[in-house]
Design a protein around this nucleic acid. Structure first.
Lengths: 442, 442
DNA sequence: GATGGTTCATTTAGTTCA
DNA sequence: TGAACTAAATGAACCATC
């Protein structure tokens, strides 16, 4: 039964039969005098129109309705007979017919801005607003453009808000356990995970370690010393002893730090404005790097310790958590080198931002925008250095920082790999860690 | 069905009038006092009114009463003279008269949300509540892994981007032509392609469905009724009349929908990463299924119509395009059954993805990867249902959806066959359709 | 000035529970 | 049953860009 039978059709003497057939109702009242000044009447509901909206003369109500209904993109069904006459007073009673009428009279959904366009617009407006707030004088005084100033301000603020230097939560972590461990694995499989060459490389090259090496004066036992002899025995008494004795604690520490950097990112307006998808991709890609940058601020290059309140860690703790020299060698080097640059909080924050806004992380969709952000951060860092650092530092500091970021990035891959490997042996890592690192980064 | 007589069509924009009668022919009541500040008095019982409810100024009591009474849909009878005067104090004494009064003053049952709509609303609220807690993927237990979350997000985004619900292109299709057709073909060839058994099967003939089958009680004309008598006459005046009068339009509609699902696939990153060869194989294999899944979102199971803006189609339209009961019977059944599941956008999108990534389509080269993708989509759907659906739905929804997909797949073959057969008789199909369907699928 | 989006008080669905 | 809720949709007034 060719269903589109419309009783109204008979009454319609308008030229365009079909465009009216389903909904008609405006009975040509507003049509005839279109000559010049259009009648300010909503073509959908007959209310007072406020101009053309999405290509049709409509009222504010129908304008908003059309935008919202199209964005919701769900199918609406008329509870009546699909032929409701839309009027000012009944327009809310049938969304389906109202929307159909909108389309009938030529409203076009292409004229609705996409979510992305809206986001860009919002970002633009926000930036301009802030820009306006910052006076030009400030720019003159600091030598930084107000845009850079604002950015740096936002970053350091985010950093301070989300980097807990009280270390008060560290007590909730699973306990520190540095004592010799007993393997449930065979000697060779264990060898695979704790490199024998570790000590040599660490201790500075050719000859073994000299006691005065700053980063070796600490209480780490070589796991091999105590463990190898036992490694073929099955664990007899100590059910809790793990192969990677520090893993539970280090895992909780990492998890905590990751939550911190996630908060850091989420506090940043330009980050929040990205799609959720991209936010996740960026965080997955940068989590390791950001935590290491933050750890660097806690690093004491004299003692080789990361000082976290009353707890402190050395590189061997990482090896006791199962990480191998292939990662730990360059990582420790990184910390010494970066520490030497003696960065300020602003610079650390900018570094984090540059790492975070890496447009080439796997899974990133809108890389252009992220690229912009990264570039802005880099420029801000450059300007900051130029204006705040003494002459002799200006020249090389920026490239050195960038170099550190590059090194960090190259460790990222290895880190992810080792996390997964470790987890296969001893699944002590938190779900968050596994989620963030369990797929390839880069 | 010219039953839909709309009094408003004749009446001009008479302010008071319109507020009352959207479509139904209810007595336009006298709204003498409504001028500006309406009296906040319940039109049913005289109690203090709280606003318009179901199209009438009523109190909270009558609002709730009306909803419940209409939903219960049982017959009420007055213990008195069927003429009780309803007041605030006696309103509970006679439900029958109270309800009658409600209807009299213009309360409309259509403005009560359907059970389906309510369910959707609940689901949406549930989803939003969960969403509120989500910051970054794993941070919070959404019950979905971030991988699944991302997948679902990508799919729904692709769906929204590529499924044009404005139906604005439908006007460019060749015209709808539902009138009786005249054959240019010889009787026998005609008979061959418009199955004589069609009507019987449809109407519940020998082998078939019983009349009370919900999906068979609908108003389709049997093409044979009008056509058979004429089938021996050659077309005398109408050169344009075709054997399959709806074919041109339906063909353009199908072509358009296929373009839509191709776009859907092409927007998906995991799809784009497949070899071009496999992309083509998958699309050829799934085009029919995807379009049908999309059509289901437009299907109104109350009316048996697919609602596409101001156009609407019923199953008979497909038969007027030459499709036969062997396809159309199970297809209509499929639409009723799937619709009943009341799926959300996310679930429809996942369904499409599962169908799309079928590793066993003819011509597929790298089936392992596709198998992976399909499995991931299936798992995502399962988790989605587990986390977003109420307890009682969790159990069977997933298998039911899979069952629908199986059914759809089995129709795929028959569809391809009929498309080719139809094209042999009346080559109105677009090249795209022929390209997609002209070789065996499965 | 024209026409996009934004804001937020208001309206009116459904929900809860005594 | 209905008073007191919650929340989505609405639209008037507004802001911003071109």
């Amino acid at each position: 039964m060719s269903v589109i039978v419309d009783p109204n059709a008979v009454q319609e003497m308008d030229e365009e039969w079909e465009s009216e057939a389903a909904t008609s109702g405006d009975t040509g009242l507003d049509e005839e005098e279109e000559d010049d000044g259009e009648p300010k009447i909503c073509r959908v509901c007959g209310d007072r129109a406020t101009g053309y909206h999405f290509n049709a003369m409509t009222c504010e109500g129908c304008k908003g309705f059309f935008r919202r209904a199209m964005k919701r993109s769900i199918h609406l069904s008329c509870p009546f007979q699909r032929s409701c006459v839309i009027t000012k007073n009944n327009r809310r009673q049938c969304q389906a017919c109202r929307l159909r009428k909108c389309l009938d009279i030529g409203m076009r959904k292409e004229l609705i801005m996409t979510d992305e366009a809206v986001e860009n617009r919002r970002a633009l407006i926000r930036r301009k607003k802030q820009m306006r707030r910052v006076t030009v004088s400030a720019e003159v005084q600091t030598g930084l453009t107000s845009e850079h100033q604002l950015l740096i301000q936002e970053l350091t603020q985010a950093q301070n808000q989300t980097f807990d230097r009280s270390f008060s939560h560290f007590h909730h972590f699973r306990p520190v356990e540095r004592s010799p461990l007993r393997s449930c694995h065979s000697a060779e499989s264990f060898d695979e995970y704790v490199p024998t060459s570790y000590g040599q490389i660490w201790r500075g090259g050719s000859g073994g370690s000299s006691p005065e090496d700053p980063y070796l004066t600490h209480c780490h036992q070589d796991p091999m010393d105590t463990m190898a002899p036992d490694s073929l025995h099955k664990s007899e008494n100590s059910a809790e002893r793990k192969v990677f004795c520090m893993l539970p604690h280090i895992s909780d520490l990492s998890t905590y730090m990751i939550k911190g950097v996630i908060s850091f990112a989420k506090v940043l307006a330009p980050f929040r404005e990205l799609s959720i998808e991209d936010q996740i991709a960026l965080l997955k890609g940068a989590a390791f790097e950001l935590t290491q940058i933050r750890f660097n601020t806690l690093f004491n290059s004299t003692t080789g310790l990361w000082e976290c309140g009353k707890l402190e860690y050395d590189i061997n703790d990482a090896s006791l958590a199962g990480f191998k020299a292939l990662l730990l060698d360059p990582l420790l080097k990184f910390h010494y080198i970066l520490k030497k640059l003696n960065l300020q909080n602003e610079e650390y924050s900018l570094m984090q931002a540059i790492s975070l806004f890496s447009p080439d992380r796997p899974g990133v969709k809108h890389s252009e925008r992220i690229d912009q952000l990264q570039e802005m951060c880099a420029l801000a860092l450059k300007s900051y250095i130029d204006t705040r650092r003494p002459q002799h530092e200006k020249k090389f500091l920026f490239p050195k920082i960038i170099r550190c970021l590059t090194e960090l990035r190259s460790m990222n891959v290895e880190y992810c790999k080792q996390v997964v490997e470790i987890h296969d042996i001893q699944p002590d890592n938190s779900p968050l860690i596994m989620e963030v690192f369990s797929r390839g980064n880069d």
